[in-house]
Nucleic acid binder design. Structure first.
Length: 923
RNA sequence: GCUCGGAUGGUGGAAUGGUAGACACGAAGGACUUAAAAUCCUUUGGUCAUUGCGACUGUGUGGGUUCAAGUCCCACUCCGAGUACCA
């Protein structure tokens, strides 16, 4: 009987469905294990062969854990809100929901063919009102909370109001975006509107003016992680900086905990590093520089307080609130002109245009240590959003200050002995201080590190500043001027104050609109919705939430997906707790993986979840790139020349569909049929073949290098696809897809099949297994178990191949051996495993089998060979029984060497015996 | 610029400091076949020797530690990823 994968895979997929094999339920008698994939955004292009890589890896792990007796939660769903469906809706008028559902169905069809063990009963979609009810619910909780810096957690805003009533801001320990202070009396006498506005400065979800990335082409605001190099990640449109009044989440309040939490999770070092950089911890000092002719101080942030003697000017960000204050009448025009020009520049232009620019404000500040007056400049190289938006410039030891000083001809004072600053600044934090002493502070002769510490102490003692930690992490901008997203559970009253809806009105469903574009007056698309009002007739918020809203707590919802009373019940949350293994791409390192950690910590503070970190272990699967093929057309002709001969002609390289190329050899007939313009193509061949060139590129339609998993499943079967994707290379490494190696794993499955059948007869027997076969099996158990635990799936597949070849060579068809082999293979190739499992007479599903136990005893050999070497040169071999002690081996080696006269009466300096069969005698 | 990875045959890739190149692809030769496909067998890092069993060399480059280095240390070259006027 042939290995008929089509029939086998169809049959067992149906069996698993009928028997609800993958249905998971809470079971306190068994330990839990939660394996999660990053749920996909269902794009119109469908899955290509790269997408399932991570899903297969997590599926293998899930099945393995289940065979080991764990109650495994392995769900799947869809991140269904997003820009592409909406862009498509704008172009075609088709409702994004229709597009999304179509795409989801397509995804599901493709996923089902691969044989995953998802519990589809728990499927979630972020655009489902039953789901986004809980996204809105969490937002309400955030609106009603503030961050208490003393307790280092979120607390109810009502507690803060109480505190204000009694004590004002004194001792309030809050995380805020203003430094405003007031007394209880001031608070109690304040108007309702002032109180409303003041509280916005403390809420975790708040309305605030913030510098946003505005993308005019998409007509919406984007988060920092949705922008790269000044263009939008989706679409690649230019992005500009703009101040807007937006909903924000106070993620920055959690910066410290997000950083600390990284120490408790099992993620790769590189991913932790990426998050650490994004959070951007930096310890320094805030210092006050008095303004000349004013009572006010200029507050700056620096990590190099030790360079205070080298400060020759100050710089403010154009957007800084100090800017207007320090601009003198004479300089007013110049400053305004400069600010206008900076605003015009998009962020991309700012990056490309690295020219030094700036303007003198007209004012001076006083260096608090030297007492010297120094000029204040305004320049866009200082960022408003970081630190205080103002810096003390030390041109000798900061490259940006150096460039600025050179341009404006400002003095540069070196502070490190023997540093060369004739062409560039000396930025390194090393060397001996000089030019840095006066009657109040002496730093000369100190190492830079000592000087930093001494200056910090000095600053605090003299009250000219304080030691401060700054984070680069900003609050998340949470409004999108878009249709296809979660509506905010927010209404505005007559005084234009924002309020949260009562929870009983949740979910607040997304309304219908006639068009998915902004209104004529420039309002977001929800402005088109008729009667977009709450029960009392108040107008509702017009913005929707961003893409990351729905994905920030989805892993919690899978624990209890049908609960309409709670996000997740206490019982379910305490059983499933958090994700034990999370598999997904690194592209979410600074987006989703920060936001969901923040979201989870917030819910943890509120007592809704019992674990502070959502994802215990995280594996990043590498990207699968495409392998593009090229043909070479001789210029101005329709003649194509084979790769090896192309250098003799003047050619143009053209992408060719990889599906009509086999092994880099072009099917010329298919090529002619591929596109009309190639119908009469002619070819210059080498060895009667047309050889194509190739390159590794991103897998995409435009490169004609997309390989569809459905085609692979049709041709080779799901099991072959699964094995091959894992065999391709280490899971975490990016690698190009190349279908040509797939025959290897397909042959392996056929050989495996051949162990059970001879012609049409099942040849499995119940003889006592040979020692040799047992050894082969136990070698495999050991290897595969270790490999799965370490996600080294490619090498375990090699181990399977070796084992099957060995069993084949010894003509072993022993039931006991094969049964174990099948269970080991079941996580990797579940369909064929299930089939063979039933062929040898088992009744239950192989999914419910038990993972084989490894027994070292079977691996023991009868004797071991040791190569005896002298000074590292191998001389001869001795053979000893297994288990012979090191000392015994040494003795035998010495005795033999003396007999062979290698030792020649010399006393060996050293004898090294290592278990891997080498004895080295150093004479 | 900074941070983190990586570099091994024609290709994808194996190697707790201990016989480098497992396993697979590709290629070459052979068996079966009228023929092809499929299947099976042999060879396959390089150079030299192939009527011998072999010899030498070899993991990006240059040093070092070690009886022993692809693996550890130092310097460099190249490639990839993240981040970027973050003071």
């Amino acid at each position: 009987m042939e290995y008929n994968f089509k029939e086998i895979e169809k049959r067992w997929q149906q069996y698993w469905k009928d028997n609800k094999t993958y249905k998971t339920e809470l079971d306190n008698s068994r330990p839990k294990f939660y394996v999660l994939d990053m749920f996909p955004y269902p794009s119109g292009a469908g899955l290509h062969v790269g997408h399932p890589l991570g899903y297969i890896a997590s599926d293998i792990y899930s099945r393995y854990k289940r065979l080991q007796g764990f109650n495994v939660l392995h769900p799947m769903g869809y991140d269904a809100y997003g820009l592409p469906a909406e862009q498509y809706a704008i172009q075609t008028g088709q409702h994004p929901e229709i597009t999304t559902v179509t795409n989801i169905n397509r995804y599901r069809e493709q996923l089902d063919k691969i044989g995953f063990c998802y519990d589809w009963n728990r499927e979630i979609r972020t655009c489902d009102p039953k789901y986004y009810k809980w996204t809105q619910w969490a937002f309400i909780k955030m609106f009603n909370s503030y961050f208490n810096t003393k307790l280092n957690k979120a607390c109810p805003i009502s507690e803060l109001i109480e505190h204000f009533e009694k004590y004002g801001t004194q001792g309030s320990n809050v995380s805020t975006n203003t430094g405003h202070e007031f007394t209880a009396e001031q608070w109690n006498n304040a108007s309702d509107d002032d109180k409303y506005k003041a509280l916005m400065n403390y809420r975790i979800a708040y309305l605030g003016d913030s510098m946003v990335n505005w993308c005019p082409k998409l007509g919406t605001v984007l988060a920092n992680d949705e922008v790269s190099e000044g263009v939008s990640l989706r679409g690649g449109y230019p992005v500009e900086q703009k101040v807007m009044f937006q909903w924000c989440l106070r993620v920055s309040a959690y910066a410290n905990r997000l950083l600390k939490g990284l120490e408790t999770v099992d993620w790769t070092e590189s991913l932790k590093e990426t998050q650490k950089n994004w959070i951007g911890y930096s310890e320094g000092a805030e210092m006050k520089f008095p303004l000349v002719g004013s009572d006010e101080d200029l507050l700056i942030f620096t990590t190099r307080a030790d360079t205070i003697f080298g400060v020759t000017f100050m710089v403010l960000a154009p957007e800084s609130c100090y800017t207007a204050k320090v601009t003198t009448e004479e300089q007013k025009n110049a400053v305004e002109e400069y600010i206008k020009n900076t605003k015009k520049k998009t962020e991309r232009e700012r990056i490309i245009d690295k020219k030094v620019s700036g303007v003198f404000s007209g004012s001076y500040a006083v260096n608090p240590v030297t007492g010297k007056q120094i000029p204040i400049y305004i320049s866009d190289y200082v960022l408003a959003g970081y630190g205080t938006g103002a810096i003390m410039a030390v041109p000798a030891h900061d490259s940006r200050d150096y460039a600025f000083a050179r341009y404006f001809n400002l003095p540069i004072i070196p502070l490190i002995e023997n540093c060369d600053i004739s062409n560039e600044s000396f930025d390194a934090k090393e060397g001996i201080m000089t030019n840095s002493s006066n009657e109040i502070l002496q730093l000369n002769g100190l190492e830079v590190k000592e000087a930093i510490a001494k200056t910090k102490l000095f600053i605090e003692e003299k009250c000219i500043g304080k030691v401060k930690v700054n984070y680069r992490l900003r609050d998340a901008i949470f409004s999108r001027q878009r249709y296809w997203g979660e509506p905010f559970p927010i209404y505005y009253d007559d005084k234009n104050q924002a309020h949260v809806l009562d929870e009983k009105y949740l979910p607040l469903e997304l309304p219908e609109v006639d068009k998915f574009l902004p209104t004529e007056s420039g309002e977001p698309p929800l402005g088109r919705a008729e009667n977009w009002k709450d029960a009392e007739g108040h107008r509702l918020e017009l913005c929707t939430m961003p893409g990351f809203a729905g994905s920030s707590a989805y892993y919690l919802r899978y624990m209890d997906p049908h609960n309409d009373k709670e996000l997740v019940s206490k019982e379910n949350n305490e059983y499933w707790r958090n994700v034990d293994l999370y598999v997904g791409g690194t592209e979410h390192a600074t987006g989703h993986l920060i936001y969901s950690r923040f979201w989870n910590k917030f819910l943890f503070d509120c007592g809704y979840v019992c674990e502070e970190e959502p994802f215990k272990k995280l594996i990043n699967q590498g990207m699968i790139q495409g392998r593009s093929n090229f043909v070479y057309r001789i210029k101005d002709t329709n003649t194509f020349v084979s790769l090896g001969l192309k250098d003799k002609y003047d050619t143009t390289q053209i992408h060719v569909d990889v599906n009509i190329v086999d092994n880099d050899i072009l099917d010329t007939d298919k090529f002619k049929a591929w596109r009309p313009e190639f119908n009469d193509a002619e070819f210059i061949l080498e060895n009667d073949k047309y050889i194509c060139g190739w390159a590794v590129e991103k897998m995409s339609k435009s490169m004609f290098n997309v390989v569809n998993p459905d085609d692979i499943v049709d041709k080779y079967g799901a099991d072959t696809l699964r094995l091959y994707e894992m065999f391709l290379g280490p899971l975490e490494q990016s690698k190009p897809w190349d279908t040509k190696g797939i025959d290897g794993v397909n042959r392996f499955l056929k050989r495996l099949w051949g162990l059970f059948y001879k012609n049409d007869d099942i040849i499995v027997n119940d003889d006592k297994p040979s020692a040799e076969a047992l050894k082969s099996l136990h070698k495999l158990i050991k290897k595969v178990t270790w490999d799965i635990e370490h996600f080294s799936y490619n090498t375990s597949i090699s181990a399977f191949m070796i084992c099957v070849n060995e069993l084949n060579a010894m003509k072993c068809a022993n039931r006991q051996i094969l049964k174990n082999l099948i269970v080991l293979l079941a996580p990797f190739a579940p369909h064929i495993a299930e089939e063979l499992w039933h062929i040898i007479g088992e009744n239950i599903s192989v999914c419910d089998a038990e993972w084989p136990k490894f027994d070292e005893q079977y691996l023991k050999e009868n004797n071991v060979n040791y190569t005896v070497s002298f000074n590292g040169k191998p001389r001869y071999t001795i053979e000893v029984a297994t288990g012979t002690s090191k000392e015994e081996v040494e003795k035998i080696a010495l005795a033999n060497s003396a007999a062979e006269k290698w030792l020649d009466n010399k006393i060996p300096k050293k004898i090294i015996v290592v278990p891997n069969k080498i004895v080295n005698i150093v004479i």
